[in-house]
Design a binder for these strands. Structure first.
Lengths: 238, 238
DNA sequence: GTACGGTACGAACACTGTACGTTACGTACG
DNA sequence: CGTACGTAACGTACAGTGTTCGTACCGTAC
């Protein structure tokens, strides 16, 4: 396209405003971009992670990012990879396999929680990057150490990852909406249940207390144990 | 607007140029908006559901929608409610409770799958609308019929809904990305596993076949049975 | 010293969700 | 019968979004 040499009237002649005087602005890189994006994600949420916002944080323009990142989706994928890469692994120990499972999955959940929105992101398009494979390898190792058959281990691994992501996703949804009250919104839910017509919602009425009981951590680890015990029970029966 | 002057023949004179001559352009309503949005979602995906696109489908402007819908988020929530409202329920029958569970959860999954993106949406901000409460009531009823204690029923209900949403979410991710090949992308995954260095990924190498075995339906129902059996096993042990 | 390959950059495009002020309509009232 | 009014629909506008393009610059290889 033609230059359209915009003759800005007030521009002083010879004004060579090369931004070269900037001290030592470190050069761009995929790593730096992902770092900046993760920082923004952590402090302002997923919807604040825009190309322009990330570029501004790096003191550059949005267009510059596209040299290192194909597009926003690719950036998000790269962020996701980094998030799963930071979870510390558990060298499988047959004597402690269940404990290790809880520890590893718990750290996965925390990692997702530290960067809100990433859990939903992982569910939306399941990534198969290096760090995900490493995590899967570790999960399979622990399950194998626990005596799971290959098929049971593989399928259980799948289910557990799903549970972690789903729980984490719900977690930061609850945190985002219930941020005003420290009580998550349990009170609102209780009020909702109490307002239901008893004839049409007898179960919800009688189960209201149990629907709200237990904190998120307790229910998370309960879910893991349920899955593990379920697979073991089915294996024992066969 | 106000153009498209098309005086209907039988109309008496004095037909002022207005959009009134439109045959029977049904007036806007929340229902009509949600219908149009769902139709677009079904045929073009979630990212095609923009206010302008929905408005165009209704032969109006985007601004007109805001009389009936607070904003896009509210529209999506309303769509989600409708999607969960269409799943047919199962009057609890103690003799068939497990079968009923599979049927009901299966229909939930299908419903999510029919409108791609809604599963992820439900996970991202768990709705507590009328139809969701009705579904929960039914789930609790079936679990109660199966002999679950109130606490077990409540917590299991939670886990199962999570699993359904997570599976459905993964389902339509896989469908969206693997659309080109009818094989989902199993072949790509197998190739990925085969390319891994055996010394660092012994588990993934030896479990590759099992990671890919079984179709989505089989694994979905396996997951449900695992959860149910897990809770039962824990209840029996206590 | 000069040519070159790749990086940074500003501007522009085609969109998005949403707010605003103004029209047109059906209806209730004088 | 005429008129005022509340509300629904509308066009327009604004501030952003992701992404592309052409260009200006840098350090390096000749």
């Amino acid at each position: 396209m033609a230059v359209t040499d915009d003759p800005t009237p007030g521009d002083p002649a010879g004004q060579r405003r090369s931004r070269r005087e900037r001290p030592a602005k470190s050069p761009l890189s995929t790593e730096a971009i992902v770092d900046a994006a993760l920082a923004i994600l952590k402090s302002e949420g997923l919807q604040a992670v825009t190309m322009r916002r990330v570029a501004t944080a790096l003191d550059t323009g949005a267009a510059s990012l596209y040299v290192y990142v194909a597009n926003r989706e690719a950036l998000l994928a790269e962020m996701l990879d980094r998030v799963t890469a930071i979870v510390e692994l558990e060298p499988p120990d047959p004597a402690r396999w269940r404990e290790q499972m809880h520890a590893l999955l718990g750290r996965m959940r925390e990692s997702f929680l530290a960067y809100p929105g990433t859990a939903a992101l992982a569910l939306a398009d399941p990534p198969v990057t290096g760090s995900v494979l490493i995590a899967a390898e570790n999960l399979l190792g622990i399950l194998s150490a626990g005596g799971f058959t290959p098929r049971d281990a593989a399928w259980t691994c799948d289910i557990l990852v799903l549970v972690v992501q789903a729980v984490a996703s719900e977690d930061d949804a609850r945190r985002a909406s219930g941020g005003k009250h420290f009580s998550d919104g349990v009170d609102e839910l209780r009020a909702t249940f109490d307002a239901l017509p008893p004839d049409r919602f007898p179960m919800l009425r009688s189960h209201a207390e149990e629907m709200l009981s237990g904190d998120r951590d307790e229910r998370f680890h309960f879910a893991i144990d349920v899955v593990l015990d379920g697979v073991l029970a089915r294996a024992a029966r066969a």
